[in-house]
Simulated scan of single mutants.
Amino acid sequence: MDAWPYPFWIAHRGAGRLAPENTLAAFRLGAEHGWRMFECDVKLSADGVPFLLHDTALDRTTSGHGTAGEQGWSALARLDAGGWHSRRYAGEPLPTLENLARWCLANGHQLDIEIKPTPGLEERTGRVVAELAAHLWQGATTPPLLTSFRPESLWGALQAAPQLPRGLLLDTLWDGCFGYAAQLRCAAIVCNHALWDAALVEQVHGMGMRVLSYTVNDEWAAERLISLGTDGIVTDRIDLFSPGA
């Protein structure tokens, strides 16, 4: 396998549940806890701006309503993406991928970009996100890792920026998933942590891909994955685990 340039520990959506997910405030808090690599979710606005949001709808984590991808960036930029979490973060805006990229690059942090397309925009989202990431990280020592549950999004990313590493996210082991990962020239498989066992880790490593897990919030689960020889853990518990471990 190629050398793996990323830390073992990855902070989920910036700071797990300690700050409003996918906001710059969350990534700053994660960095204050000593974390060096972060996971985020990226989709497209109606006018094609890659920005951070997990859900298809705005309602859970912003002051907005409806499908996020159907609104232009000028409207999305005015939303409150922090007040749902706590009064401390009220008024925190949605960041663009470019906002986060420049912060990561300025501070030497690494990023796992989960491509989270609005339904129907899978390939386009992968292509646009990969094109922008390749531009923003041009010349950087360590590029971002592009991951997605949607093979179509990874296909778009492969076509746009084949030099960027990709990872297939899996909540279940569906028929042909590892074959798809190989066709997409993935560098990693990122599974629901409960799916991994010794035989599966050996199989994926034997295919030349790294083994990562999400979302691991218990010590016993982390210890099991470490003993299996996996290559990375995504966690909400930035206050429990030591990212230097």
Rank of each mutant, 00 (worst) to 15 (best):
M1R: 12
M1C: 08
M1T: 12
M1W: 08
D2I: 02
D2Q: 13
P5V: 05
P7V: 03
W9Y: 11
H12N: 09
A15K: 01
G16E: 03
A19G: 03
E21I: 08
E21P: 05
N22V: 05
L24F: 09
L24E: 02
A25F: 03
A25L: 09
A26Y: 01
R28H: 12
R28F: 08
A31V: 01
H33R: 15
G34S: 07
E39Q: 07
L44M: 07
L44R: 07
L44Y: 04
G48R: 05
G48K: 07
P50W: 13
F51D: 00
L52N: 00
L53D: 03
H54P: 03
H54F: 00
T56N: 13
T56F: 06
L58M: 05
R60H: 08
R60Q: 11
S63Y: 10
S63T: 15
G64H: 10
G64C: 10
G66N: 06
Q71W: 12
L76N: 01
R78W: 09
D80C: 05
G83D: 11
H85F: 06
R88D: 15
A90M: 10
A90Q: 15
P93T: 08
P95C: 10
N99C: 12
L100V: 02
L100R: 00
G108Y: 03
G108T: 06
G108Q: 04
I115T: 08
K116C: 04
P119T: 04
E131D: 13
A134Q: 14
A134R: 12
H135G: 11
L136F: 04
L136T: 04
W137V: 01
Q138P: 04
Q138I: 01
G139V: 02
G139S: 12
T141Y: 07
T141P: 07
P144V: 04
L145R: 04
T147I: 10
E152T: 09
E152I: 05
S153E: 10
L154D: 12
W155K: 15
W155A: 15
G156M: 11
L158S: 14
L158I: 05
Q159A: 15
A161S: 14
P162A: 15
G167H: 02
L170N: 14
L170M: 13
D175W: 13
D175V: 09
G176F: 06
C177Q: 05
R185S: 14
C186S: 10
A187W: 00
A187N: 04
H193E: 09
L195G: 02
L200Q: 06
L200G: 00
E202D: 14
E202R: 12
H205E: 11
G206I: 03
G206H: 06
G208Y: 09
G208R: 07
M209A: 12
S213G: 11
S213W: 01
T215N: 13
A221N: 07
E223Q: 15
E223F: 05
E223M: 11
R224D: 10
L225R: 07
S227T: 10
S227D: 13
G232L: 02
D236M: 06
D236N: 14
P243T: 08
A245E: 14
